[in-house]
Design a protein around this nucleic acid. Structure first.
Lengths: 396, 396
DNA sequence: TTGGGTTTGTTGTCGGCGATAACAATTCAG
DNA sequence: CTGAATTGTTATCGCCGACAACAAACCCAA
């Protein structure tokens, strides 16, 4: 169904079955995140005995999830440790990214390997016909082995309870779409499970797992397209909020005397730093990510109008980020989507605002970065979401 | 030292020792939170077998942490289940609350029972002489049994790393105080452990454990005195941030053209809804929590100046809360400290701002409440903090 | 090439923990 | 007072990881 995961039943009384599950999960998660890892490393990282690691890997091997093979070069004295590798070709998930101007579908193997990928442009304003191309792509890419399900990243609000997607008004009116359920009904035998989440959240998850935010437990991923959203990780946990609508920072009001926003309020952050505003300020007649890139490019070439536009947007970007930094005290802020280029072109403004608004204690330890996974973050995060269930209970 | 707790070593490979620790901890936590609970309830709540519960309680009884006794009235057929009660008189913690205008110290038994309490007014502007009265009170209240340590709630920023307290500029200049370490050095044999945290965070913890936020995993506790802070719980975890400075919402800029703030920025939320502004708007010459109460009282009696002041502050209060609601999508917002009375007097303004600014999806499921524990929240939360270590590993 | 040192996989045994089942204890309904 | 219902208690069992001993495989030096 939806996200699920959290086995946090507040009672938390582990019994013997669960200890096995958790250890298998921890081991498989290591293999998944590092692609391949030696048994010797596993013993030290997991803090378990050699014999236990042996038994666990044997179980996972029997289940067809991992393989063991002799290492290429040892380098050190002593018996070389077997390398445990994820069965990336036969254990896989589908990753779907429903973005503003395109739909992407990928098949991603355990370990985070991109096996196959397709995409199709997405006409703005049209909401119908989202499921069809996804279904087609998935059928086309069907491979050998075992599919654990699909993860979907959407540029809209996702209700945690049932995975209902509330698409942004920009995309042709406010529409509630049960994308996950629809997809599962279409391909019941192919997809044992379909999970949905917000793009920003999944980009954050991806960067957390295998990007710039690796090992970082307090960070914010700012994602911009037409609107603005944030994937927030605090204390190592995704901030989803009660209904699943956490991180909707785009409608934080930053300018009480600002322009009206599509949400009914006015002066929302989104109206100050969104694609629409930047393009309008830069007197661009085009729209979309390419248009944003063009404006940034014009600015870098000395176009004064574009420069002024970028500076103004950068000021508001820094303003909002400074507020978020005060609230969350993160270690890292990542600028993704179109905000990546906007940030790169206006880093001075952003830093300046941060210095004048954020408290010294919170500002001094913040790193501002761009994504390590580029635009693949959403897909990798979606796959990560689909793999969660397997990683929590490998032998289910 | 500082907060500690989180046994989240990312590897997370539980062995047999840990399963016992966790089960003992889970059982003791239930007893602690409910004061007393029957063994039958424990079996169903923890999902463990009767015999296991018996063994666990036997261990805890032997350690002197709990007692078992026959129930008063059964009401149902069948053998009456033994009631497990916390040894509140002999297992206790000290709770300290360093507030703007007073210092409070309490002795609180396991199960959350208030055993003893003292307080002393705190002259504003003076920072020295905080440790002395605390030390004296603790010595005076020393009781029989085992003390697990002390928890301190402070109206200032607490660095997680080492528990260093950065007191608000309002309290006599920015001063870094190692309160926890100082106290532990003073009473090394009495206090095996001293933990510090922010007042708002601890009020949140208290309300989460035994207040209006019981069973609620996404909520915000707004605490106001001279400044404004928030204790934020997201997904059941406290949002502390990377350095421990999470929740410093008071310096979120809400009014880009607002008044300068002590932090160097201007238009901070704190300058719009803080005690100082309310009193100035209401033309009050007094200061402190009593003065705030007086203004609210004047407003309720029809004083137009006070009413206007309360309305204006209420507007900004609602503005900021709406932004936080958009960011966190909480289930509950609690108004504590002086904000309690401000909120009660301006609930209409707060709701109105919420309706006009917050997204429908996030706003509709938010409950606005006042604390169930009143002004004792900070003390109870501080004790809760001190008990964490015991609850995580009862037989350490 | 050979032997020592080193590191790791494998095997068998052991202790600990919770589940299970059978029995004893206690209460209530009639 | 008897039977039904519920719970505490005890003994046994299965499972899991720790531990120790041994075997395997590598590096290095003579």
């Amino acid at each position: 169904m939806t996200v699920s995961t959290n086995r946090n039943m507040r009672a938390g009384a582990p019994s013997q079955e669960e200890i096995r599950r958790q250890n298998l999960g921890a081991l498989l998660r290591f293999v998944h995140e590092r692609g391949q890892i030696s048994r010797a490393e596993l013993t030290s990282e997991l803090g378990l005995n050699r014999s236990t690691i042996g038994a666990l890997t044997a179980d996972l091997t029997e289940a067809g999830l991992v393989t063991e093979e002799a290492p290429r070069e040892t380098g050190r004295a002593g018996r070389p440790s077997l390398v445990v590798r994820a069965m990336s070709e036969s254990i896989y998930a589908y990753a779907v990214s429903v973005e503003v101007d395109q739909i992407r579908v990928a098949r991603i193997g355990l370990g985070g390997v991109l096996l196959d990928q397709r995409s199709i442009p997405r006409p703005r304003g049209s909401i119908a016909g989202t499921i069809d191309p996804i279904t087609t792509f998935i059928k086309q890419m069907a491979g050998e082995g075992r599919c654990v399900g699909a993860g979907i990243a959407v540029c809209g609000m996702v209700r945690r309870e049932d995975g209902m997607v509330h698409l942004s008004p920009y995309l042709g009116g406010a529409v509630d779409e049960p994308i996950a359920d629809s997809l599962r009904e279409r391909l019941p035998e192919l997809l044992p499970q379909v999970a949905v989440a917000n793009v920003a959240d999944l980009c954050a998850l991806a960067e957390h797992t295998r990007g710039v935010a690796a090992g970082c437990d307090n960070f914010i991923y700012m994602y911009g397209d037409v609107g603005v959203g944030a994937g927030i990780v605090a204390g190592g946990h995704r901030v989803t909020g009660h209904g699943g609508y956490g991180g909707e920072v785009g409608h934080m009001v930053v300018n009480p005397v600002g322009r009206p926003c599509g949400c009914g309020s006015k002066g929302c952050w989104e109206t100050e730093i969104g694609e629409h505003t930047l393009l309008k300020l830069a007197q661009s007649t085009d729209i979309g990510a390419q248009a944003v890139l063009a404006v940034v490019d014009r600015a870098s070439r000395g176009d004064h109008i574009a420069q002024a536009a970028v500076r103004q947007v950068g000021d508001w970007l820094g303003f909002g980020v400074a507020n978020l930094v005060n609230i969350f005290n993160p270690e890292l802020v990542i600028f993704g989507g179109t905000l990546r280029d906007v940030y790169l072109a206006s880093a001075a403004q952003v830093r300046s605002k941060l210095n004048s608004i954020a408290l010294a204690a919170t500002r001094e330890h913040v790193r501002l970065r761009t994504p390590a996974l580029g635009s693949d973050g959403a897909l990798i995060g979606a796959a990560e979401l689909a793999f969660q269930q397997l990683l929590n209970d490998p032998l289910a």
